[in-house]
Write a protein that binds this DNA or RNA. Structure first.
Lengths: 198, 198, 198, 198
DNA sequence: ACCTAACCGAGACGGTACGTCCTGTCTTCTG
DNA sequence: CAGAAGACAGGACGTACCGTCTCGGTTAGGT
C-alpha cells in the first residue's frame, strides 16, 4: 500500500487532461466554480486520480498556472540596471498583472492565505524564480557602484514587486504602464547611492 | 415582508452575540473553521438572523475585524512629515501586521480575491480610512516643498503601504521594525524633491 | 443541535416522495441498483434528509416494503383451526412469496444478515405481527383440545412459516399452492394430539 | 489472451494465501469488512489474481466456507431412520448453525439473495450434498414402509431443514438441542404413514 | 539453451457510492 | 410578532471499493 504513489507510473494522458480541463473550467467560470468533481468529470478521470497527485483544488490550479504562464519575464544581461529593471517590471505587468493570468494569480494568492502548503509552493516555484534574476542584476549593479549597498537586496526588490501586487490584491487601482514607470522611477531614486530625504 | 430589514428594529443583543461568537471562533480555529452555522449556534441565534444582516461569512468576519481593530494608527499633526510617516508605519505594523490582526487581515484579503463586495467594503471602510490621513500629511509636505510634486500621491503612498502588505500576503518574510524603518527611509528618499537615479 | 431530529417537523411531502422514488427504483432495477444518492435525486430531496430519518438504504427499503405490503394476511376467527391455518398460509404465499413482494422480502432478509438493526426491525415490525394472530389461533385450538400442548407454540408455528421462507431464501424451489397445502397438511398432522412416529 | 485461465498453472501458494487471508479477515471483522483489496493485500497477492480465479468476494468467501467446513454431517447407514434423522439434525446444528460457521452461512445466504450465481453454487455444492444422504435414508425408510409415500421427499425434508435455517436467518431465536429434538419429533410424527390432523 | 506464453505482485486507472459538511431558504413554535 | 430552532434542497467534499489495465519479473513448457 503506497503512501506516496510512484510518479514513474503516472498516466501522462490523465495528467494533461486534468490540466486542460482545469484550465477550461477556470476560463469559463473562474476559480470559485472549479471543483475537484468538475475537473474529474471534464477530464474523464476518476476523482481518486486527482487526490492521488494533488492535495487540493488550489494545488491543481497552481500547477495549471505554472503550466500556462511559466514563461518569463527575463532580465537581459546586456543592458544597464535601470533599463533592466524597467523592462522586467513592464514585462511582469504584461504577463501576470493584466489579463487572465492576473486574475488567476489573485485567486491563488487569495487561497494561499488559508493554505500554507500552497503559500510555500508559490514562493518557491513562482515568486522566487522571478525575483532571483532581478536580485542578481541588482547585485551586479551594487558591485558596479550604481546601487547603494546599505540596504538588503530583498528590501530593495520589494520597492518594485510590492506595488505591483498591492494594487492587484488590495486597492484594486489599475496597474498601467504609467504606474509601472513611476514605481520604477521611484524605486531607482531610492536605490541611488547616498539617496536620502533630508 | 421587508426586502430590506429595518435596522432600527435590529436586536442589539444578537448583534453583539454574533460578533463575539465569530471572534471566538476565529481565535479558536481560524477563518476556515468559521461557518455561518457555527456562528449562529455559538451566538445562540437563528441562522436567519445572520443572513438577514450579513450577506456572507466574510462580511461578518470583516465586521468583527472592524469592531476589534478599528483603532488607528493616527497621524500626529504636530510633527514633521518624515517623523509622521515613520510613526504611522510602525503603528500600522504593530496594530495590523504582526499578531492575530495580521492573520485576520490576510484571511480577509484572501477571501476578497473572489468576493468583489468584500473587496469594495474593505477598501472603503478600512484601507482608505487609513490611507487618507497619510495622504493629507503628504499633501501638507508637498505644499511645504518638502516632497516632490511630480508624482501622484497614491503612488507615493504605495511605496510604504505596499511592502507592508506584500510581505504579509506574498513572500511571508518577516515585517519587523528594521524592515519598516528601511522601507520608510527608502520611500522618503524616493519622495525627496529632485530625487532620481542617474 | 439536535442529535435526534423532531418527527413533528418532518416534511410529509419529502417523506412520500422518498418512499415513492425508492419504490420506483426497486421496480426498475432491484435492490442492488438502489442507492441513497439515486433515491434523493429521484425524490428531489437533499441527501441529508435521507440520512436524517433513515440510517441506511436497507431501512428505507424496509419502510417502503411496510408501506406497500403491510396488508395481511388475516386469520378469520370464525373458522376451525385447520381451515384458518390453511387460509393464512395461502394468503401469505399469495401476498409475500410470489411476485415482487417476495423479491423485496428476500433482498431485505439478505441485507438483514449483516445489519442487526434491520434484522431487529423486521422481526418486530413485520414477522412478529404476522405470527401473532396465528399464534393466537393456535392457542385457541390448544384450549379446545384440538392441538397438542406438549410443544412450544413458536416451534409449532415454525412448521408452517419456516418452509415458506426456506424455499424462498435457500433452495429456490417453487412455493406453489400444492407445496403450501402439503406443508399445512404435514404441520397439522404433527400438531395433532398424540401424534408421534412410532 | 486466455479468456479462461489455465488451472494447471495456478499458483498453489497464492491460492492458499488467499483462502487463509480471507478466513482471517472474516474472523476479525465479519463479512462486511472483507474486500477484494483487503484480501489481496493480506495475502500478498495481486488484485488481478483474485479476479482471475473468482468472480466476486462472495465466491471467495464461499470457497473458504467450503474449505473450512466441508466435513459432514454424515448419515450412519446402520441405524433406523428416526435415529439417523435425529443424529443428522444434531450434527448439522453443531457444525453449521451455532458458532462462526453459522455466521458465515448466514452472511453467504444473505449475499446469495442478490447474487444468483452464488445462490446456484451454494445449492449445488453445499445444500444439496447435505440433503442427498438424508433423502436417501428417507427413501430407504419409505421402501421399508416406515414413512408415508404420499408426500414428496423434498417437502418432507424441508420439515427438518427449514426450521433450522429459519431461526438462523429470520427469527433469530436460538437453535438449541431441545429445539432440534422437538423439530425432529414433529417432523417424524408428520411423516408417519397415515398421519393426519382430523 | 533459448523463446514465449501465461501467471505473478504491484498498483494506477475510470468510475460509483458513500456519509459528512456547509450553504442559503423556508417553516414552525415560543416568549 | 420577532427570533431561536431547525428541516429542507442542493451540492462539494474526501474516502473506500470496484473491476480493468499495464507494467516488470518469474516460471514453465516447447523448440
Amino acid at each position: 500500500m503506497p503512501a506516496e504513489p510512484d510518479p514513474a507510473r503516472r498516466s501522462h494522458e490523465s495528467w494533461r487532461a486534468i490540466l486542460d480541463a482545469t484550465f477550461e473550467l477556470l476560463e469559463e467560470g473562474g476559480y470559485e466554480s472549479v471543483t475537484m468533481g468538475a475537473i474529474a468529470a471534464r477530464a474523464g478521470v476518476g476523482r481518486q486520480t486527482l487526490y492521488r497527485w494533488w492535495p487540493s483544488k488550489a494545488a491543481v490550479v497552481f500547477e495549471v498556472f505554472l503550466d500556462k504562464t511559466n514563461i518569463g519575464p527575463f532580465v537581459d544581461g546586456g543592458e544597464d540596471f535601470p533599463a533592466q529593471l524597467r523592462a522586467f517590471a513592464h514585462g511582469f505587468r504584461a504577463l501576470y498583472v493584466e489579463g487572465p493570468a492576473g486574475t488567476r494569480l489573485r485567486e491563488l494568492i487569495g487561497a494561499a492565505q488559508t493554505d500554507p502548503d500552497l503559500a510555500r509552493a508559490m514562493v518557491e516555484q513562482w515568486f522566487e524564480p522571478r525575483r532571483a534574476p532581478v536580485r542578481n542584476a541588482l547585485h551586479e549593479a551594487q558591485k558596479a557602484g550604481l546601487v547603494r549597498t546599505d540596504v538588503a537586496a530583498d528590501t530593495a526588490l520589494d520597492l518594485v514587486f510590492a506595488p505591483l501586487h498591492y494594487r492587484l490584491l488590495v486597492s484594486g487601482c489599475p496597474v498601467d504602464a504609467e504606474y509601472v514607470d513611476t514605481v520604477v522611477d521611484l524605486a531607482l531614486a531610492a536605490m541611488a547611492p547616498g539617496a536620502s530625504f533630508a
